[in-house]
Write a protein that binds this DNA or RNA. Structure first.
Length: 418
RNA sequence: GGGGGCGUGCUUGAGUGGUCAAAAAGGGCAGACUGUAAAUCUGUUGGCAAUGCCUACGGUGGUUCAAAUCCAUCCGCCCCCA
């Protein structure tokens, strides 16, 4: 039987780990409970959260019990690690609403119950740490938990270090983040026997704080495992594009755009991404990753399809793939999955100035940008370039009552008139 | 509590009364070359009814023909001393 730890390691999920042999052994010998925290500051997770999600999924497949924590309590503080400035504090209702939609996204990767749907017995749990953090009493907390933390130790941690060195400084509020995260681990250990916390490598010191808190108070050894922080080969943060994050919410990033994000992966990242973001067996991952030159596009197509299937389901992945092939392969007309807007027919009969059209459908964020796009030769309708800014688009250009616009090489948009 | 300093566009960061929609770099976008990749080169990068107008250098008010630049005040932040 293949040990999950080996699987995680082989696929590149392990950056740092407390006592590797112990963790490997623990995971092999019995079913354990593990947890990962998610940040509810946005209403959706983005591609950057996929590493923890996939790791959780691998562990659950191996029979271990996941707990996903939504940081409803800790978010009220703001994690200082890797943030250049203090995070904006969100109202509680907002955080709760975000948590609810994040749960839906988590469900696509791991099976979870909430405290209220406990009966489902999905084998995993979804909790909000506000539940135990908010009722805490300050004095009690300081006496019971705070006493175990040494400030001189804390400020040596990289996470605080950076903030201390920078001009922005660090507020006392944020300084407490680590204590609360450590307390989460303690709480989960006490309530659910949770023995392992996973997180991004920037969480290492926070996780260790929890490990040592449990050891001091409970005399028990629990474990920490961190994932490497992903940047693409070109140095960009994983899951971010110029337009912002790549979201898992189909309303914020359509499956087509999601698919396109992956297919545009840098050659150098393909193999690693296949290992992280798909469940394909490693020999297949290596085969695809080994493809060279133009052939590596096949690997990117597999990556894009598999990743989209996990996030949005097979039907959406099929559609995205078809639309992508139609747009870039030059064949077929299966374009429904492409970003589409609808305009009233009268508009096209009246004639729409081209600048207005590109701006209105979102291919240009202002009319000036549309103007630039057109002047620089980046505006296409049905693959025909238009360079004159006072062009008026009328009904003679319609194909099946629709226009296919293109901005630059890769951004497509369909406009349907009805 | 005392003293010193800072706040500029997506980011870093110059600018200390007009020549400033604001240097430079990074990032972004477009074009060329390509494989929907990378690298490279070129152009471009506040908005608009566009040889002009509007908005913008933390907020507000003021001085001036003219303010990112000077003054007052407020807000936020940093450093040193207590």
């Amino acid at each position: 039987m293949n040990n999950v730890f080996d699987t995680l390691k082989e696929r590149g999920f392990v950056q740092q780990c407390t006592h590797e042999e112990n963790v490997a052994q623990l995971l092999a010998e019995k079913q354990i409970t593990y947890y990962v925290g998610f940040d509810p500051t946005a209403e959706s997770l983005h591609a950057g959260s996929l590493v923890p999600l996939m790791a959780m999924a691998h562990l659950q497949r191996a029979g271990h019990q996941p707990i996903a924590i939504i940081g409803g309590g800790t978010t009220m503080i703001g994690d200082p690690s890797d943030k250049t400035e203090m995070r904006q504090l969100l109202p509680r209702e907002q955080i709760a609403a975000n948590g609810a939609s994040i749960l839906e996204q988590l469900q696509r990767y791991v099976k979870l119950d909430t405290p209220t749907t406990h009966a489902n017995n999905a084998g995993g749990l979804f909790l909000d740490n506000a539940e135990w953090l908010l009722p805490l009493n300050y004095i009690d907390f300081l006496r019971d938990i705070g006493r175990h933390f040494r400030v001189n130790e804390m400020i040596r941690a990289e996470a605080y270090r950076q903030r201390l060195d920078r001009e922005e400084g660090l507020s006392f509020l944020e300084f407490n983040y680590q204590l609360l995260q450590a307390y989460d681990f303690l709480h989960l250990y006490q309530q659910y026997g949770c023995a392992l916390q996973l997180g991004g490598d920037d969480q290492w010191s926070n996780i260790l704080a929890g490990v040592s808190l449990v050891r001091r108070l409970e005399g028990e050894r629990v474990h920490a495992l961190t994932f490497p922080l992903l940047t693409t080969a070109s140095g960009a943060k994983m899951g971010k594009t110029a337009d912002g994050a790549v979201w898992l919410d189909a309303n914020k990033t359509s499956p087509y755009e999601f698919y396109q994000y992956w297919i545009n992966t840098d050659d150098r990242d393909v193999e690693q991404f296949l290992a992280y973001f798909t469940f394909l067996p490693m020999d297949e991952v290596q085969r695809l990753g080994g493809l060279e030159h133009a052939a590596i596009r096949e690997a990117k197509a597999v990556l894009a399809y598999e990743a989209t299937k996990l996030a949005h389901g097979k039907a959406a992945a099929d559609k995205a793939q078809a639309a992508s092939r139609a747009a870039f392969g030059g064949s077929g007309q299966e374009l429904e999955a492409m970003p589409t807007s609808t305009l009233p027919t009268e508009r096209i009969h009246a004639g729409i100035p081209i600048m207005e059209l590109f701006h209105e459908v979102g291919l240009a964020s202002s009319r000036s940008e549309a103007r630039r796009l057109i002047q620089q030769g980046g505006a296409y309708i049905h693959e025909k370039q238009y360079r004159t800014i006072n062009t008026v688009v009328d009904a003679t250009l319609l194909e099946n009552n629709a226009l296919r616009l293109r901005a630059g090489k890769k951004r497509y948009h369909r406009v349907v008139f009805e």
